[in-house]
Amino acid sequence: MLFRRSDLPLDRDPAGGFLPWIVGLMVYLAALALAGAVLADGLVERWRSDLADAVTVQIMPGADEQGAQTQADRVEEAVRFLAVVPGVASAKPLPQEDVLRLLEPWLGSGSIAEDLPLPALIAIELIPGAQVDLADLKHRLAEAVPGAVLEDHKPWLGDLARLARGIEILAIVTMALVAFASVLTIVFVSRSALAQHQEVIQVLSLIGARDSYIAAQLQAYSFRLATLGAALGVALALATVLAGSALLGRAETGLLPLAQSFSWRWLLLLLPVPAAGLIALATTRATVLRQLRRMA
């Protein structure tokens, strides 16, 4: 399949010289889309595992008409209520310092926050796999404890998952388009190589070369160029992703924990290299065999 020595002076082809760059660029874009999909997928998975069994209860700050019952009383009451609900593993009030820390990016660390009426938070952990009717629980809790609002993360996670799936589909469509464009490019390059070397190919055929022998030479050539181009594109895409994550990492957004989210999925980014090579090989072979039959 791969020749050490070529009977065709292919290295001087002008059209072939562009092939690695074209393939490289296209693969770069496809790999970025793929990186986006892998990233989104990883994030959804992480958040899901963190949040799926977690529910939060907010106890709204007390208004005057609720009398002597303080916010702290109502937190205690809610915790007592929740502790006996089947399926609930634990219900812990979040210390007010933690709530303040969560709000710090928006409110700053000054004393303003302390003066503001803030909701108290209770973190509930569900027993994994337990079937808890959260809508019903929310209703009953609101009746039992005034100002208690149960927040379920699932709807929000669902939106996020849909977004991730959208990015995935986008990546797949991009890959398909890139593959298609690569096929067209390679058909063009193969035909131009055939035309350019028609005389040599004729001689090869006259001295007994099979069509498949001639195809093998061109095949090896476009396989080499496409693989080179794809490797280039993937390397560039990896560099871009790493640079991007370094920048984001410096900004300390905990949202994009790239370094921690390494998984086997990232190996998908290498996929375009063998894919481009195989596509080039098959496309060139088919093109050459068809053209040779036509030439006869």
């Binding site: 055929s205 006259l206 001295i207 007994g208 070369a209 099979r210 069509d211 040779l292 039959r293």
Partner: peptide
Amino acid sequence: DREEVAMMRRRM
């Protein structure tokens, strides 16, 4: 066919 032509040319 083309294959046989190639084989024949090897004998020439």
